[in-house]
Amino acid sequence: QGDIVVALYPYDGIHPDDLSFKKGEKMKVLEEHGEWWKAKSLLTKKEGFIPSNYVAKLN
């Protein structure tokens, strides 16, 4: 089961498979690959890669 993270900063995706998000948006982490994680937005239901240093895990 994936962790839920919250965006600390907004992110505008650079690549087509990036997931753009707004500050405060919550996402479910699907896979962790070093600095880039695959996640699904709980708001938009879209999936893509996010920079892990832009988010914090919720406990």
Rank of each mutant, 00 (worst) to 15 (best):
M27I: 05
D12L: 12
E25N: 02
D3I: 15
K22C: 10
L19A: 02
Y9I: 08
Y11V: 02
P10D: 15
H33R: 11
A7D: 00
K22L: 10
E32K: 15
K46S: 07
G13K: 08
V29K: 04
M27K: 00
V55E: 01
Y54N: 04
A39L: 06
D18S: 13
Y11T: 00
E47T: 13
K23F: 07
G13Y: 01
E25C: 04
N53Y: 10
W37Y: 15
T44H: 04
K40L: 12
K46Q: 11
H33Y: 12
K26R: 13
Y54W: 06
L43D: 10
V6C: 09
S20G: 06
L43T: 11
E31A: 11
K57H: 10
G34N: 06
I4M: 07
F21Q: 02
L43K: 10
E31W: 10
K46E: 09
E47H: 07
D3Q: 14
M27A: 01
H33E: 07
Y11P: 01
P10C: 12
P10K: 12
G2E: 10
G48A: 01
V29T: 04
A39M: 05
P51D: 04
K57D: 06
Q1D: 12
V6S: 04
K23W: 06
V5R: 02
D12V: 15
K46F: 07
D12A: 13
L43C: 12
E32Y: 15
V55F: 14
G13W: 03
V29H: 01
V5H: 05
Y54F: 11
G48T: 00
D3A: 14
F21T: 00
E31K: 08
A7E: 02
W36M: 10
V5D: 00
N59D: 13
L30A: 03
L43P: 02
G2Q: 10
A56Y: 13
K38I: 11
N59T: 12
Y54M: 10
M27L: 12
I14V: 13
N59P: 13
G24R: 04
L8P: 00
L30V: 07
G24A: 04
H15C: 14
P10L: 07
H15V: 05
I50K: 00
F21A: 01
N59L: 12
I4V: 09
N53T: 12
A39V: 14
A7K: 00
D17C: 14
K38F: 15
F49I: 08
E47Y: 07
T44F: 03
D18T: 14
H33L: 11
T44Q: 04
K22H: 08
E25V: 02
S52M: 11
D18Q: 15
N53C: 14
I14M: 11
L30P: 01
K46Y: 06
H15G: 13
G34M: 05
D18W: 10
